[in-house]
């Protein structure tokens, strides 16, 4: 079942097209990987999906409830690196979209946040300060927070950035588990083509001059896009 339908999406910034006639669909339980060079419009697409920018033409169709319940994992900022907040404070802030005019988090929110901590194996560092954690632990905390604001869809923006190889492998394993065992739909922007394509079942490749490829991972490997980029990486 389609949960997101993106049709003929076009976005331009001061008359320079960033996305043009982009169409793709996301089904419940999909693991979609969005790849492409810098400046190919990945961040713009993410912003469209989050409803932060309205496309010039074309449209994105989703259920209304989905829009407000996307679990989003943005890129880490420099501000966060030395931010004084405990793991629990950060995870709990994932319920921000569930406050609905209330001023403070409820007991149920706190219980649910604790469940998320144990799901990601970070219960033991609940009261530790975020800034003292390793990159991999920080990413788990942000994932737990993202999972607080969603039951169905995770949107990740280059989650492997700045992680060491071991932490990256760990991250992929966690995402696989969320996707396969918990049925969470995942949309991930990624830089590491080979791993991402191996993990995902669908690939959206944004290329030069607003060209794009959308299809399953198997189709991607056989396509011109896939041959050029995956092949290129293997020779490195």
């Amino acid at each position: 079942m389609n949960i997101i339908i993106c049709e003929n999406l076009s976005v331009a910034f001061s008359k320079t097209p960033v996305l043009k006639d982009l169409s793709f669909t996301v089904d419940e339980g999909d693991y979609l990987c969005i790849v492409g060079e810098n400046g190919s419009g990945k961040s713009t697409l993410i912003k469209c999906l989050l409803g932060l920018i309205a496309p010039d033409t074309g449209h994105i169709v989703t259920e209304k409830s989905l829009f407000n319940h996307i679990g989003y994992l943005p890129q880490q900022t420099t501000i966060q690196k030395d931010f004084p907040a405990t793991v629990f404070e950060v995870v709990l802030s994932g319920f921000l979209n569930d406050l609905n005019g209330r001023l403070f988090y409820t007991k149920a929110h706190k219980e649910k946040a604790k469940e998320m901590l144990s799901l990601f194996g970070i219960s033991d560092i609940k009261n530790k300060s975020y800034r003292t954690l390793s990159g991999g632990q920080q990413q788990r905390v942000l994932l737990a927070r993202a999972m607080c604001s969603t039951k169905r869809l995770l949107l990740l923006d280059e989650p492997e950035a700045g992680l060491d190889p071991l932490a990256v492998r760990d991250l992929y394993a966690t995402l696989r588990k969320l996707n396969r065992e918990h049925g969470i739909t995942i949309i991930m922007v990624s830089h590491s083509l080979n791993e991402a394509v191996r993990e995902a079942n669908k690939v959206l490749h944004l290329g030069e001059d607003c060209s794009f490829f959308f299809g399953t991972s198997k189709e991607y490997e056989k396509s011109e896009f896939g041959k050029r980029f995956l092949g290129g990486q293997k020779n490195d």
């Binding site: 989003y72 966060q80 802030s93």
Partner: peptide, 22 residues
Amino acid sequence: VLFYNRIFAITFDESFAKATGT
């Protein structure tokens, strides 16, 4: 004090807060 939780979320991660509809 009333908006403490929202102020925390926005200070820590503006893009997340924005994406979740704040």
